[in-house]
Design a protein around this nucleic acid. Structure first.
Lengths: 192, 192
DNA sequence: AGAGAAGACGGACTATAGTCCGGTTATGCC
DNA sequence: GGCATAACCGGACTATAGTCCGTCTTCTCT
């Protein structure tokens, strides 16, 4: 292996880049909280953060990427609880119990950040299925669904009922509790 | 009842409006078929149809509305088969059999017009749940799901697995047959 | 500290969805 | 047939996402 590859393990972020990223995230969080996710343009975020539009887009790709970055910390908490936390979310619980716990925990997360998750999922076509977090949730559910004839399909189906678009549309019609009951029932039956 | 209301039963479409509508639908169908739905702008449709942009948007509302209008005829065929056709789609079949038939028929329709349906469902947030066709499918499935604890939720869940976005994302990963098998299984279990 | 290179910066630019309103045309009534 | 009215027409206009490239900052190595 050439020496050059060993000398630069992480390409290390420049300090101006780090400063700007923090400024953008802070400005975006503030504006989204104040005016609502949909009422804030990328121009406004850039202006509020005191950076140019090019910087904003180079760093986050698009509006969905900005949402993903804002959700990142909260998502990691849930992922950590799944990987190493106590039952019923963590690995010591039984599959069925663990699946129900995941579905409920994810629904809590989703309802808490509905507008932001929705933006991260719908900003570009197919965005939801490409982001890393979806792959994580999908793998987790598919493993728990080992009793189903096609665990991978079953996992996609459960996650379809947990899409932000779907939940946002059902919320005014059915209310939180019917949604919660329905998705838990769905998960239980999709999995065997 | 006042006489005026009897004299003008339908507010009748003006002949120039009818001509323009036909021109737009024909132009849109041609352009979408030639270049793909996503690669055609509304400006191009208007130019190809020989009408102004204002006319296009006043008539169809937005890009999703144009897609809905193009799908309208095909959708009616399926709705007709459900309301008055022979079993297993029509009303003489048993609920379970009828539900499976619907799911399969809808999947056929969806796969045949995937890009167009996707545009009609995703052009604006929540569009899918507002269009009349969704309400029709939902009511139909909810009635067939009378064995479920919450038939309305179950119907939404089945339709979530039939959204264009979902199916389009799963198609390259799982292929048509696994999707078909999965959704049929899901429908069977969501309903009892 | 200084120089050179890698990479970030930012605002002008493009493309597109959707709105608006003054002008035009069809329609129904006399 | 002529007129008043309602409806339609179309293109200029706005707002926004996302791209591009010349300039400038930061980092590293000596």
């Amino acid at each position: 292996m050439p020496l050059e590859l060993l000398r630069t393990p992480p390409p290390k972020e420049r300090s101006d880049a780090a400063r700007n990223r923090a400024a953008v995230l802070e400005a975006a969080a503030r504006l989204f909280a104040e005016r609502g996710v949909d009422a804030v343009s990328m121009d406004q975020v850039a202006a509020e953060a005191g950076v140019g539009k090019g910087t904003l887009f180079r760093r986050f790709g698009d509006k969905a990427g900005l949402a993903v970055a804002l959700l990142d910390a909260r998502e990691r908490v849930l992922q950590e609880a799944i990987l190493h936390g106590p039952p019923p979310l963590g690995p010591e619980a039984g599959d069925g119990e663990r699946l129900v716990a995941f579905v409920e925990a994810y629904l809590d997360y989703l309802l808490e950040h509905l507008a932001l998750v929705r933006m991260s999922e719908t900003a570009s076509p197919g965005a939801r299925y490409r982001i890393g977090a979806y792959r994580f949730w999908h793998r987790h559910v598919a493993i728990l669904a080992n009793g189903a004839p096609d665990p991978e399909y079953a996992a996609h189906a459960v996650l379809a009922a947990l899409s932000a678009e779907h939940v946002a549309a059902l919320l005014p019609e059915l209310g939180e509790e019917r949604i919660r009951g329905g998705i838990v029932r769905l998960a239980r039956c999709a999995v065997r």
